[in-house]
């Protein structure tokens, strides 16, 4: 029993370590190196000799071994173990696509009547997938800042007071499940429709087995979004693409930066929802959720959202009408993020 447990633990930990060389993962060392190179080139063009000074904070031990960073690592490994137990029982995307495809055919959907060359189908599918995936990521993220019970879980990500590339994995497992469900809905709906319309032709534009936009996004500095390096793309480009510095604004503890820049790749969605803010290479920010959670350890990060929900649930059971009216009033006041949650 103990031997099996140890073997499983070792296997999962080695798989976690392998993420560092896996090009499908954002924390891959390849993307880390390329992001640094990209930042160095841009800073050299903008600032000449001071380029090194700009990226130097990323090499400080204080950044990588701060209490905040240690929570990042704890959640990364903890989630890895938790998801290895959860995933075999989860609904698979393949099963949902199969069912949806069959139902679509049953209601009369059939192959597209005009023959489109493979490259056309692959391009169309890739563009549709990119837009739908990027928008739904934005939208779910936006909702997480709007709904208190979702914010309770998402706040785990925002409690990082030091941003490191591993902060991308600082996620509560409940939020991880929500991410999976979002991805399942997007992939299952889009793939099933395309498979029925263009059977045997659907594929994705990839580079080395990775979706081309994900590859470019990761290669060109995605790891700097969660880092002490403020890299702005400039106002013109930031109207279209979310820069690392813009995402850092999203993490800022300053009230002026609350609820801005929810996007992942495209800035378009933030513009449409009126929440885009421009960033600067010179910005000096403090990060965190401005709550007790910022000082908590790994266990606190797992437990506090559940404790919050339990407390709210208890209140609701006691008096649903009172709870609802208080919730409506609070929403009407449009308070800054996190202020309606006490720990």
């Amino acid at each position: 029993m103990m031997e099996e447990y140890s073997a499983w633990l070792l296997n999962e930990l080695s798989l976690a370590a392998r993420d560092l060389v896996n090009p499908t993962k954002r924390v891959s060392l390849l993307y880390f190196a390329s992001a640094l190179f990209f930042a160095f080139v841009l800073f050299t063009l903008r600032d000449r000799k001071r380029a090194w000074r700009r990226i130097l904070p990323l090499f400080r031990l204080a950044t990588w071994w701060s209490p905040s960073a240690r929570v990042d690592y704890g959640l990364w490994l903890g989630n890895r173990l938790l998801f290895s137990l959860l995933f075999p029982k989860a609904i698979t995307t393949l099963g949902v696509v199969t069912w949806l495809m069959f139902r679509l055919q049953e209601v009369g959907m059939s192959a597209f009547p005009v023959v489109i060359p493979d490259w056309g189908v692959v391009s169309l599918f890739s563009v549709c997938y990119f837009l739908l995936d990027d928008f739904t990521r934005f939208w779910v993220h936006w909702l997480m800042h709007r709904w208190p019970w979702l914010w309770a879980f998402h706040r785990v990500h925002h409690s990082a007071t030091q941003l490191t590339p591993f902060t991308v994995l600082r996620t509560h497992p409940v939020e991880g499940v929500l991410f999976y469900l979002r991805s399942l809905v997007v992939q299952a709906s889009l793939v099933s429709v395309f498979i029925v319309l263009f059977p045997g032709q659907v594929s994705l534009l990839t580079v080395g087995g990775v979706f081309v936009t994900t590859y470019c996004f990761n290669l060109l500095g995605a790891n700097l979004r969660h880092s002490p390096v403020a890299l702005s793309y400039g106002k013109q480009l930031e109207r279209w693409l979310i820069s690392p510095a813009q995402h850092q604004l999203h993490h800022s503890v300053d009230v002026a930066h609350y609820d801005c820049n929810f996007g992942v790749v495209l800035a378009l969605w933030d513009r449409l929802f009126g929440c885009l803010q421009f960033a600067s290479d010179q910005q000096k920010l403090h990060y965190g959720s401005a709550s007790k959670l910022d000082q908590m350890g790994v266990f606190g990060h797992y437990w506090s959202p559940i404790a919050y929900l339990a407390k709210r649930g208890k209140q609701w059971l006691k008096s649903p009408a009172v709870w609802w009216s208080s919730r409506v009033k609070k929403n009407a006041k449009s308070e800054p993020k996190g202020s309606n949650i006490s720990l």
Binding site: T24, K25, R26, W76, N79, F83, L86, F87, A90, T92, T93, L94, V97, T98, M101, Y129, R137, F138, H141, H157, T167, V168, L169, R170, T171, P173, E175, G176, V177, F179, Y180, S183, L184, Q187, V191, S192, F194, I195, V196, F198, P199, G200, Q201, V202, S203, L204, T206, G209, F211, F262, V264
Partner: peptide, 23 residues
């Protein structure tokens, strides 16, 4: 005689496993 439309291959490319990568 593939009746799946190649969905298995597409989903492999999409990396449809759960991920905790945050935004």
């Amino acid at each position: 005689n593939d009746k799946t439309g190649g969905m298995d291959d597409v989903l492999k490319l999409l990396q449809s496993a759960p991920s905790v990568e945050n935004d």
